[in-house]
């Protein structure tokens, strides 16, 4: 048994560490988006990131050095893919927040239209691109077993940076989300912190999409926070529950996906959904039994 575990560790240590990172950090970012009432934005942005990645893969033969590297190693340079995926996410966030600042309402419709267009672009550019179907499938299905050390480094650097920034700026971001009028009254620079949040979300989603795939990014952004919100009595409690649920989901998915021989991303998302459902049910029971004031 010990030897088996060591073999698995040797084979999958990079994807395993990557799954822990996304399991802990993406639910925190999703929690902020949920409280900011920007869930729709969080759903559309990974799709734009995937579209950016698809365009990057389509353009790959235009860069002779990178194309040669792909031919030698079977996958493009991670930083190249991240630039396109992150760029797609940040551009989409910038466009949506620009729209939101100039128009009252109508953002949901625009997000739905954007989601449809981005999905079509992803499929179209991947279909037109020169890369093998296996790589494309692996990236989009969230088959993180293929993740290499460079991918892990990109993910770790981006998520660590984003975590530090969001931890430092959590108070103004939460104040703006809860009571924007008070934030303005106190002189909190709303635009600055909103842009900072969007930049962090864009970078995290971009790094997540190129390494663990859009399916896992979608799932971890929102399933744990949705379950945690109803059961939390304070902000630290909410964020701890978000991360804990994400962490349990990514850990428990490993034996499951290896046993079922299915892609890791969808397995983790389904498990995360089940966990969220159970957690939500237990929380409702506790509330029903709890004290009345």
């Amino acid at each position: 048994m010990k030897q088996l575990l060591l073999d698995y560790w040797y084979l999958f240590q990079d994807p395993f560490i990557a799954s822990l990172l996304v399991g802990i950090i993406l639910p925190l970012i999703g929690g902020l988006l949920l409280l900011r009432r920007a869930v729709f934005l969080g759903v559309a942005v990974p799709q734009f990131s995937a579209a950016g990645l698809a365009i990057g893969l389509w353009l790959l033969p235009w860069w002779p050095g990178l194309w040669q590297e792909f031919l030698d190693h079977g996958h493009p340079e991670m930083s190249y893919m991240f630039a396109f995926a992150g760029g797609g996410a940040v551009l989409a966030l910038g466009a949506f927040s620009w729209w939101e600042s100039r128009h009252r309402g109508g953002t949901e419709g625009l997000l739905a239209a954007g989601f449809a267009v981005a999905s079509a672009m992803s499929l179209l550019f991947l279909s037109m691109g020169p890369l093998g179907a296996n790589l494309v499938d692996a990236v989009l299905k969230g088959e993180i077993l293929y993740l290499d050390h460079h991918g892990l480094i990109v993910l770790a650097v981006v998520l660590s940076l984003v975590s530090v920034i969001l931890l430092a700026a959590r108070r103004p971001i939460l104040l703006i989300a809860f009571d924007p009028d008070l934030a303005a009254t106190l002189g909190v620079p709303r635009t600055l912190f909103e842009r900072l949040l969007w930049l962090c979300v864009g970078l995290s989603v971009g790094a997540g999409v190129v390494t663990v795939g859009p399916v896992l990014v979608f799932g971890l952004l929102f399933l744990p926070p949705l379950a945690a919100r109803g059961a939390s009595g304070s902000m630290p409690g909410f964020f701890i529950r978000c991360s804990l649920l994400g962490l349990i989901a990514v850990l428990a998915s490993w034996p499951l996906c290896l046993w079922l021989e299915q892609p890791y991303g969808p397995t983790a998302v389904l498990l995360s959904g089940l966990l969220a459902l159970c957690f939500h049910g237990i929380s409702r029971l506790n509330i029903a039994k709890g004290p009345r004031y």
């Binding site: 103004p172 002189g187 009595g233 902000m235």
Partner: peptide, 23 residues
């Protein structure tokens, strides 16, 4: 927002925020 998981103390604490002490 009635669904925000803020405690009473966290709400009151917001009154202490200033641009200079946000971080």
């Amino acid at each position: 927002d009635s669904r925000f998981p803020l405690s009473v103390w966290e709400v009151v604490h917001m009154g202490l925020f200033r641009p200079g002490n946000l971080l």
